[in-house]
Design a binder for these strands. Structure first.
Lengths: 248, 248
DNA sequence: AAGTGGTCTAGACCACTCT
DNA sequence: GAGTGGTCTAGACCACTTG
């Protein structure tokens, strides 16, 4: 009988790269390939070190790197786990609305269409112009009061399941919903914040007057492999906007 | 003759604290106490380790902590240096002005008064209400065009030298100026961003019309020891506002 | 009690900078 | 070549979690 002992898989750092850097890259790839799904535990560090034929300290250094990058999470006495994607309602960190502080907003899809990507949308999604995308309009409310108006573009082969799904089955938070229905985990996003008066349709959706001062947050969201999987433009009342930064 | 050999100074970690954590705290205190001024080099890690009677790896861990905290900077082959305070024109990262991109704005002090701190100013500066402060109004321009209007409060025993200093001698950047004239280095700051229409005087200073959409950035700046050494409220044109964040 | 990650040691060797 | 920080090793022991 053949023992199922772990293979020795050596990692060769590229010239100028450290061994722990190469190890981190290799482990990252194995996570991307689905070897350890979100929420599951990696092998113990001693086993990983033995498997790759490096000292324990070197493997620890590699794992620390992945922790810094937000890919994994370590818990003393329990293990090393693959982190899930972004989950909260991260858009709300920009806004302060009177009552509902920390409360999850209700979501309502106002429109859904399959369209072809315009030049601008294609550029931001990193796809070719004319590729099919799913376009959504969405209104988020707190305490019955409309607060955020969103336009969302999703690349289409990837999100096919959402094209026909009954709108009642959609969740109030999109990112956990993407994981559940499409297996897409958002792990990183960039937000760009700007100021502009609201157009008439935007203002109407938010129950404000046309030309009211508005904040625009343009988000590009990426999955583990670095593909852009969502483009979202959110608009809200500029007077409800607030944001804190610490600089060092 | 007594050799000037370095004393062995043991650091006792508090219960529940790691040794490298205690070491980092001890080194931080020595920096605050002025043992190694801004820009100078700390002793080599081997010497520091020997001086504190710990292994090299432990000392390295402590130094890594201080690097993460932004206190020091390490350069391969050169040494470990105490980081200077914030220096650039960090306010400008919020704004995009047509021509002068990356250019240092001209500054003009419009008003300077010694006053007593109001309740709000005192709270934000962390001093008692009624304490003396220096209040400034300052206009920053790019290419001759006024761009930012600032109100600044400085706690007064600390900034006494600035009370009578000829306004012509002030620099275009305040933080390097604070170091030079008052020995105060700003090492950390928090910014809070919000929108509000400009009041008539604010708009006048910026050559805009009263009620024009404005951005307000409220900054509290801190020195090495964690004291708040500046409160600054900056106002500018909302249409020039832009900001990027990456979330993970 | 067994298994996990966290701390600490004592060394070797390498890569970079300055003179 | 001398001095610095960066990498890597091989081990010991501790602290936390779980069955």
């Amino acid at each position: 009988m053949t023992a199922n002992r772990p293979r020795l898989s050596l990692v060769q750092p590229e010239p100028g790269q450290s061994r722990y850097g190469a190890l981190a890259a290799a482990l990252r790839q194995r996570v991307i390939d689905g070897e350890w799904p979100v929420g599951t535990a990696l092998p113990a560090e001693t086993n990983l070190a033995a498997e790759h034929g490096v000292a324990l300290g070197t493997m620890r250094r590699a794992l620390e790197l992945l922790v810094e990058q937000g890919l994994i999470e370590r818990q003393h006495g329990r293990g090393t786990f693959v982190r899930g994607g972004l989950s909260g309602a991260p858009m709300l960190r920009f806004f302060r609305f009177g009552a509902g502080d920390g409360e999850v907003p209700q979501s309502r899809i106002l429109a859904r269409q399959s369209v072809v990507a315009s030049a601008d949308v294609a550029r931001r999604l990193g796809i070719a112009r004319g590729e099919p995308v799913l376009r959504l309009q969405r209104l988020r409310s707190l305490g019955g009061q409309p607060r955020l108006f969103e336009e969302i573009w999703l690349p289409l082969p990837l999100f096919d399941t959402l094209v026909g799904l009954a709108l009642a089955d959609w969740g109030d938070l999109l990112y956990p919903f993407f994981v559940e229905r499409c297996g897409v985990a958002v792990t990183r996003a960039t937000d760009e914040v700007g100021f502009a008066p609201l157009t008439a349709p935007q203002a109407r959706a938010l129950e404000l007057s046309a030309g009211h001062p508005g904040v625009t947050v343009t988000r590009q969201a990426y999955d583990l492999a670095g593909r852009c999987v969502e483009l979202r433009v959110t608009r809200g009342d500029a007077f409800a906007f607030h944001y804190s930064v610490t600089i060092t």
